[in-house]
Write a protein that binds this DNA or RNA. Structure first.
Lengths: 256, 256
DNA sequence: ACGGTTTATTTGTCTATACATAATCGCGGT
DNA sequence: ACCGCGATTATGTATAGACAAATAAACCGT
């Protein structure tokens, strides 16, 4: 018999079979009917219950495993995972795009620009093991509707991105420029709240020591450092938000 | 012919066929050889190149699409996605577990506890549409090694979690208690930097207006509000970190 | 009772094939 | 030129069957 999901409910949107199974199972799990550690029916049983092939069941279960809702072990079976931690996904947009998306005008100003041999601090910031070469150090401020939006300190490793030395960043800020030029494979983010130091307070036109949200980002390309950025947002003008659901990362699957 | 991946390279770990394809393609993309917008070879072509069935190629491409590295459109083909935004994944641990994991002693203190009919602010905080019922409002402080670690304000919707009213939270703090009792399906996080107001500064034993990292979390169970929490961390004692790679969420796939 | 061997179960991967669906392309009629 | 319609292409979903790998459970000889 060929692919005929004629089993369908009367009308509207005949949800694919594997998504139907996936949804049913994730409902059992997130509703708490099946508690952590309890056993999920094995594939052949679900196959019988849903009257479909094992591959279809497998697709559903693999997706649940990938989303972290269940754990699968050969011969033992599949089990509901214990929710030890919540997971939140933050999308970090390019600053220029972010400002534009909010319908505000964008512009930026480079306060300082320097090419130097990396000192110990620079190497630590870049997450760099090798020595030698040079780095490009930039300080800039991004404006939204004319008011300071975020202060940026950036280091670019010229061993990895030599063409940055000749770039004057008149067309695009270094963040966007890099994003469109260099592929990254690893990134590390640190988020903290800090009081604005004098230099930053002045650049952002806020009071000294007022609360700021600081995002530090390190980026690598296959183990080789690319860039380091320290973004400082006035605390009362910026927040990171993230909506998340259903069930630890399944949303992407359910939406596809 | 049956499943015989005898094509294998001589020795060590015969990586599954679909992962091999996936790795090859993601290498082309993250290395920048295939720039954003460029076309990925169609399935039948990869099938010929790798001498395998279309299902195997499809599995690799679906995974890449799911990871956000490529975009697939029927009839048009698959294309390298434009990296418009970075994605960061933060794991939010239970506070008790987090403190314990750092090898510090843990304890908490409930400063205030009140059951009331929800006012407008409570309803907004919970993301609640229906009216009626009551909420449990709690204020507490968590300590690590005897020093204040985080201040927590919490609302629990007693329409959704009626058993919370009888609970005195002597065994576990409300966050852990809820996590082990109520399944959530949706969550929203907002991260901001704020100056400590007098009440919080006092509870955390820090100076007024000093920078704090604030995490606001709203949790639902299938559209019904469960709880709202406002966690305030002294800025100099806490930071959120996240390591991420390679390539926008593929790490989970590559590791499986 | 103990330790090694066989068996059975469950998941993991793969094939070959089929039909469905979306969307682009080009053809032909007006 | 323009619009509609069929042909083509690429992906999306599904099937039935096969073998591989891991490992828990049963078996068996000492």
């Amino acid at each position: 018999m060929a692919a005929n999901r004629a089993v369908g409910k009367g009308g509207a949107a005949p949800l694919p079979r594997y998504l139907e199974i996936q949804r049913d199972l994730s409902a059992e799990i997130t509703s708490g009917t099946w508690g952590p550690g309890s056993r999920v029916p094995p594939e052949h049983e679900l196959q019988a219950r849903y009257q479909c092939s094992r591959m279809t069941v497998n697709k559903a279960l693999s997706a649940l495993a990938h989303a972290g809702l269940i754990v699968r072990r050969r011969r033992s079976g599949s089990f509901v995972a214990s929710p030890t931690s919540q997971q939140m996904v933050l999308k970090i947009h390019d600053i220029q795009a972010e400002v534009a998306a909010a319908g505000m005008s964008y512009r930026f100003e480079i306060l300082d620009r320097l090419v130097r041999r990396p000192d110990a601090e620079d190497r630590a910031r870049l997450g760099r093991s090798r020595s030698g070469g040079r780095v490009l150090a930039l300080t800039l401020v991004h404006f939204a509707n004319g008011t300071p939006f975020v202060h940026e300190e950036r280091l670019i490793d010229l061993l990895t991105v030599p063409e940055a030395e000749a770039e004057d960043f008149s067309a695009a800020p270094p963040g966007s420029w890099l994003l469109n030029r260099v592929a990254w494979t690893d990134a590390e983010h640190v988020i903290a709240a800090i009081p604005a130091e004098a230099r930053i307070a002045k650049a952002l036109a806020i009071a000294r020591k007022s609360a700021c949200l600081q995002i530090e980002r390190r980026t690598w390309q296959g183990g080789v450092p690319v860039t380091w950025a320290l973004l400082t947002y006035p605390g009362d003008r910026h927040r990171l938000t993230s909506r998340f659901g259903p069930a630890q990362g399944l949303m992407a699957l359910a939406a596809e």
